[in-house]
Write a protein that binds this DNA or RNA. Sequence first.
DNA 1: ATAGGGTTAG
Length: 698
Amino acid sequence: MTRQPLNLLDHLHQTILQFLNPFTASLSQARQAHAQILKTGLSSDTNLTTKLLSLYANNLCFDDANFVLDSISEPNLFSYSTLIHAFAKLNQFGHALGLFSQMLSRGLVPDSFLFPSVVKACAGLPASKAGKQVHAIASVSGLASDSFVQSSLVHMYIKCDQIRDARKLFDRVPQRDVIICSALISGYSRRGYVDEAMQLLSEMRGMCLEPNVVLWNGMIAGFNQSKLYADTVAVLQKMHSEGFQPDGSSISSALPAVGHLEDLGMGIQIHGYVVKQGLGSDKCVVSALIDMYGKCACSFETSQVFHEMDQMDVGACNALVTGLSRNGLVDNALKVFRQFKDQGMELNIVSWTSIIASCSQNGKDMEALELFREMQVEGVEPNSVTIPCLLPACGNIAALMHGKAAHCFSLRRGISNDVYVGSSLIDMYAKCGKIRLSRLCFDEMPTRNLVCWNAVMADMQCMERLMKLWSQKGLTDEGWYYFNSMSREHGLEARVEHYACMVTLLSRSGKLEEAYSMIKQMPFEPDACVWGALLSSCRVHSNVTLGKYVAKKLFNLEPKNPGNYILLSNIYASKGMWSEVDKVRDKMKSLGLRKNPGCSWIEVKNKVHMLLAGDKAHPQMNQIIEKLNELSSEMKKLGYFPNTHFVLQDVEEQDKEQILCGHSEKLAVVFEGREISVRDTNLFHHFKDGVCSCEDYW
DNA sequence: ATAGGGTTAG
């Protein structure tokens, strides 16, 4: 009679065990089994509870896992190990460490199997203090000589940016294996220590150790990450020449470097290898190939590789979009993006960010804003990469409200501290004429890299344009202060764009000679930005002699930029040298260059309106013109006459008046009673209460 | 239980 219930229990036990099969069980089965266990009082069965723990952990059900752990009267090392291993594997490092400390406080002693997972958790966070403590505990437990523990510790120190501790530990290991060497070599590679990595690789020979594929791949990925592109490719070649077959992982880590180097020959060779080895079905390899051809300016091959794919892949689609826009084919990029979407392709955050970046980098700012909205409608959340791709579009068209919305989003999502987000905010606010907000963003950035110095230097340029401090030494001094402190206090080398900013600051305040001598002393060839800055100051200060000289330099550097011709002709015009003006205009005509039409944008009720000079395309154009005429006659009644002196063209007075009234700025001003930002060929004007921030200087 | 885990967006 006593056997019957035991059999029943046995049967139940078997059923629950089946439900808890780690390979087949679903979360709901785990919950059912859990309920059964509780009902039948099987909680003391360690076999069952451990399986349950592992299932909950693998499904990231922290609360359930903790509940089970608490219900075990005497949780042992095995219970904790199960959970910690699972969490470490699933990148739930905080949970893993929390359980580890709980386990220690219960007086349980970890074994050599548990330590690697715990150390991995410290590496993953990374948490260097905890890592050191765990190291100490391992030493006290006498387990620090275990090779698994040692390898994981080396990895942890590298992740915590403590290369010297990693090396110290490595040096004390008597019996080194491939794995611990691989950990250190990959660490060196990721931090850009090429010599140390290569040295250790050759030392392995002396230890009778052969590198394996994982080691090679770690080196390739590491060098690529350190932007040491030539070294990346060199390692791939070395690997191959030493008789190792690069796998998909090797190829997809090396291809970005080939692209950066624009080494098409190497790219084609690798493509051949991919085909030969049958790696063509590897999605990462294919995407990387498409990207490589895109970077090497081979639009045809980019599309070809894409179309030869046997299976659609979102990564490859993204690479194609970027590849097309990189080669001046934005419209094609937009077209294929639309096709992908219409085909029901699962577009991810990279897809949306790519197309937004393509637009904002190619003068399609309104489209970028629209796509950003569309993306959110589709339920895709922007991230810290999306924002810096979008913000230039806001800045370009002074879409302040959109920019502010992106700023608020960044604050809510806790990504405003990201150095790229911060830099693009600085830039966006400066371009919208919001200097104080721009500076606020700069001051609040916790870390500053080259990108944000670029932004703040550009910001200085805007300030110089927008403030009244033209000739006072204050702003120039501030510029010098930033310029010098960049290298002195932050160890960043001034680059050509920083020189361009200083040239602007100096030349705008009238120190044209000082600016020119700075250009001559630059440690590298001055580019078009530098000369352009000087030329536009020559225009401000009507300096014909220097202007003529600078323009010549610019015509050589960028013969197709109409802006330079316009500037020079304006310099002549400001001195009434109309025959010289005609010469420049004739030159432009013979080169087939045309002045880009003036363009204004205005945000009304969160919608951006674009107004092109001389363009009648705006749907409300009739009302706008009516209102303009109304304003004009009202202004004239109050004693205002269009100042035709500012029309730098040798035309009849009446035409000048016409030209002035057709200005896109005027068109935007019709939306009166608001803050208005307008941009001419080289700066933004910010109107508030009818007063322009440039104080009518321009 | 230890090293790499790759591609496409700034």
